[in-house]
Design a binder for these strands. Structure first.
Lengths: 235, 235
DNA sequence: ACCGTTCTGTACGGTCGCCCACATAGGCAG
DNA sequence: CTGCCTATGTGGGCGACCGTACAGAACGGT
C-alpha cells in the first residue's frame, strides 16, 4: 500500500492523531490481511505487533480453563489491538482473534513502544482509548451476567454492523453462541425471534441487517452505553 | 497523622514508589476514615479524590439499570482507587464503595493529575497497576459467567482475607449475594457447605476464616490467576 | 420476659445453562 | 440424481440458579 493510499485509511485512532504522528505511523506500519480465525495476540504471551484495523473486526476474548472463551470487547476501525503495550507490560491480558476478515495496518510492538514516549498527543489518544476499552470490558461483564440472550444478540449484531461497514456478514449460530457464552440452540431461538420481527434475515450463516432502528430497540442499553463511552472520551 | 507515622504506612503502591515521590505523596495526602458504605467515586461522575487504602478495602462495582451492582474488582492496601485519572479522563468508569472500614490516604484528583506528569517512575507504577486492574476486571467477568457460587464465594473470601488483614470480618449472606451477583439463598447454601467442611465459621454476619489452605482449594483458579497477575507485574 | 428486627435455612416453580440426539434443509461434489 | 457435509430447528433429561416466600433462630432494646 502506498503512503498516499494509506493516508486515506479509515482507522479513527490514526485519523485522530496529529499529522506528524500520523505520517510516522503510516511510514512504519505495514498493511496485513486479517483472516477469520487469526489470533493477533494470545493471553499472557508477548505482543508481537499492534494492529489498527481498517476493515474487518477483532474480538477480545478471555479464555478460562475448560470453557469457551468469553468475548469481552470488539475492535474495529474505531480502535486498535495491543494498546496495553502503552502500560509498559509486554504481554497481552487477553486473546485477540479476527472475527471479520479485512485489512489492518500493523506495527511491531517494539517500534510502537519506542515511539510514543516522545509524542504526548498520541499518548493522550492511547490513554483515552484505554479508558474506553476498560469501560467496554465492564459493560460487557455486567451485560453477560444480567441481560437475556435476545437483547445481547441484538447488541452484538449492532456492534458488528458498525465495525463491518456492511449490512451482511457471515456468522453461524454456533459461532454466535461462543461469543455470547450461551448454548447454540439458545441463539437459534433468539435469532428466530429477531427474524420473525423482520429485524434480521439469515440463511445458513449469512446474516443481513434488515431494520437497524428496530434492532436498536431490541438491544439492551449496553449498546448505547458503549457508544456513549466512546464518543464522550474520543468523540 | 504525622509524616513520620505515615512513612510507615503499608500501602504497597506508595511503598513501591521512589522516595522522592513517596515524600511528596505523604506530604500532600490527608488521612481519612473509610466507613462501610461510603461511596468514594460514582460511575460517570468526576473523581474528587484518589485513595490509597492502608487498612480496609473498597469494591469496584458496575451498576446496571434495574439490577444489583456487580462487583468487578477489590482494592485494598495493594492498590488504589482512582487510577483511571492517569488516563486523562476526569470521570470514574465505575462506582467505588467501601466494603471494609479502615483508613486511607487521600489526595485531591487535581493534585494527583498535576503531579505525576513530572515523575516517570511513579507513572510507571500507575501504569502497571492499571494493567493489573484490567486483568482483574476480565478475570472477574469470566469467573462470574462460568464458575459456580461455592468456588466464587471461596475466592471472594480469600481476596477479602488478604485485604482485611484479619481472620474475622462482618459480612451477611445478603451482602455477599450482591457482591457475587447471585441470590441470597444461593450464598446461604454455599456458605453452609464451606462451614460444614470447617473452612469458615459464621454466625449472624460474623465470618471467620478457619482453614485458609482449604479455602484456597475450594476456590476457583481465578484467585491464583489474579495473584499471579499482580505479582508478575508489580511484584 | 417480651417483641421486633435481622439473619439464616429451606422449599417451590420456572428459566436457562449443559450434553445429547435427531430431523430437516440447503449446498456441493461425484 | 444421489450422497455427504454443514447449518438449523426441536426436543429430552439434568442440574444450577432465579424470584419468591415462609419459618425458625439469634440478637437488641424496652
Amino acid at each position: 500500500m502506498s503512503i498516499k493510499k494509506a493516508l486515506r485509511v479509515t482507522n479513527k485512532l490514526i485519523a485522530g492523531v496529529p499529522s506528524k504522528d500520523r505520517i510516522w505511523l503510516l511510514a512504519n506500519c505495514e498493511p496485513v490481511d486479517l483472516v477469520f480465525g487469526d489470533i493477533l495476540s494470545e493471553a499472557d504471551r508477548p505482543i508481537e505487533h499492534v494492529y489498527f484495523p481498517l476493515v474487518g473486526f477483532i474480538s477480545l476474548v478471555a479464555p478460562l480453563n475448560g470453557h469457551q472463551p468469553l468475548e469481552m470487547g470488539l475492535v474495529g476501525n474505531e480502535g486498535m489491538v495491543g494498546v496495553t503495550l502503552k502500560l509498559g507490560i509486554k504481554t497481552a491480558p487477553m486473546r485477540a482473534v479476527v472475527q471479520g476478515s479485512g485489512t489492518a495496518l500493523r506495527l511491531t510492538g517494539s517500534k510502537f513502544t519506542r515511539y510514543f514516549g516522545d509524542t504526548p498527543a498520541m499518548c493522550r489518544i492511547l490513554d483515552q482509548y484505554l479508558y474506553v476499552l476498560m469501560a467496554q470490558l465492564m459493560q460487557s461483564a455486567a451485560c453477560t451476567r444480567f441481560h437475556e440472550i435476545e437483547p445481547r444478540l441484538a447488541r452484538w449484531l449492532l456492534m458488528t454492523h458498525d465495525r463491518a461497514h456492511a449490512d451482511h456478514f457471515h456468522l453461524t449460530h454456533e459461532f454466535l453462541a461462543d461469543m455470547l457464552g450461551v448454548r447454540r440452540s439458545g441463539v437459534s431461538i433468539a435469532a428466530s425471534a429477531l427474524q420473525l420481527r423482520k429485524l434480521i434475515g439469515y440463511t445458513r450463516g449469512e446474516i443481513s441487517i434488515l431494520n437497524r432502528k428496530g434492532l436498536e430497540e431490541a438491544s439492551c442499553e449496553c449498546y448505547d452505553a458503549m457508544l456513549d463511552d466512546y464518543s464522550n472520551v474520543l468523540g
